[in-house]
Design a protein around this nucleic acid. Sequence first.
DNA 1: CACACAATCTAACGATCGTTAGATTGTGTG
DNA 2: CACACAATCTAACGATCGTTAGATTGTGTG
Lengths: 219, 219
Amino acid sequence: MRTQHPKSYLYEHVARIGKALSNPKRLELVELLAQGEKSVETLSAQAGIDMRLTSAHLKALREARLVETRRDGRYVHYRLSGPDVSHLWVSLREVAEEHLVELRLALTQMVSEPDSLSSESRESLLHKARQGEVFVIDVRPLSEYDAGHLPFARSMPLAELEKRLADLPQDRTIVAYCRGPFCLMSDEAVKLLRAKGFIAKKISDGVSEWAASGLPIET
Amino acid sequence: MRTQHPKSYLYEHVARIGKALSNPKRLELVELLAQGEKSVETLSAQAGIDMRLTSAHLKALREARLVETRRDGRYVHYRLSGPDVSHLWVSLREVAEEHLVELRLALTQMVSEPDSLSSESRESLLHKARQGEVFVIDVRPLSEYDAGHLPFARSMPLAELEKRLADLPQDRTIVAYCRGPFCLMSDEAVKLLRAKGFIAKKISDGVSEWAASGLPIET
DNA sequence: CACACAATCTAACGATCGTTAGATTGTGTG
DNA sequence: CACACAATCTAACGATCGTTAGATTGTGTG
């Protein structure tokens, strides 16, 4: 990091952020943390990464000041250092989607229900949700819903969905969302709901994408 | 890049973009390219990097699809793949400035004339420039001015500034800008102008920052 | 077609990174 | 104070990256 030329010293610091975002596992951790504060154990389990490796990657993210920690008993809870970090993750992902054909291809193959939201349709969704024309459900775990969710959304975790079908309307469109474009929980929810006779669709937005487009998040 | 789990395949692609942005020299090249299309030779000279190494780094940027090329005779001209790439560079730099204290410290030490623009003052600068209350000069090389510049800005390259003092008003504030917060040309311009009795100040914005804040760029 | 010159390729190197697995630290509980 | 368990540390490794310098490719010019 020592340099004779003072100017390249500036770029070296920015590169620290880039380096932190240069690893797929770290990006997955950032995306999970964008859903709310989580312990190392939870991150390890949700990302499917060995806890010791998870801890090592979190250390790298902390050294780049992208995450902060809080100890609570045996648990250490990690969180993003600010909303700008989740916004950066969204921008990075959008540039990748825009320019890397392979990524777009992989996405269309994996995601059974492609439904991107343009800025207009976000506004119109908000309007319909406010009017009660659609029923928006958040299929992430409850703790993530509590950490922040779309306006007018109800928590309906994927794991509990089948048991709680009675809480859902049969005459209106149900709109499901989860963690973002890479998350498949909303796809599974739509598949299940349609099999049960509901009118359901998904949006690819998560709270990060929603917030990055300038719209409000509820807590 | 091969993975058994289809999901991590998505993050691997996004990590390609992060990897491309994980090196200080590549970031400097991206910032230079945000000023407009340039040949390998020009980039090498302006960044002070050996041409063979410059070419290698550009190859990495091209493989991440962040830049595109155009051959013109012996010269190969590189350009950013889109405005989203220069926006991403700005976001990355802003996150670094926000969270890395060392970077903020280094910046205040290097930049003699700190003057960040908030969103309000950008609008008000635009208004004053339109009214002719201030005289905005772009001190970058002419080719960069031609590739895109702030509205109402006149080209006044730093190298020619001393010879062209007669073109500048003595009764109004002169506002200088260059490539962005890491660029020192506007500082030098202000120093020179003040020594010659002009009323001068700088703004840290370059065209990328200006455009990223949603304001228009002229060509 | 010899030459100039921009750009790229190649091989080689030391440094850094990602991953694994065992050891250790830190906190709470019986 | 023994124990459970979350989290971190450590050492070791193979893989990747950054850099250097010589060789080669590609295009235009006399």
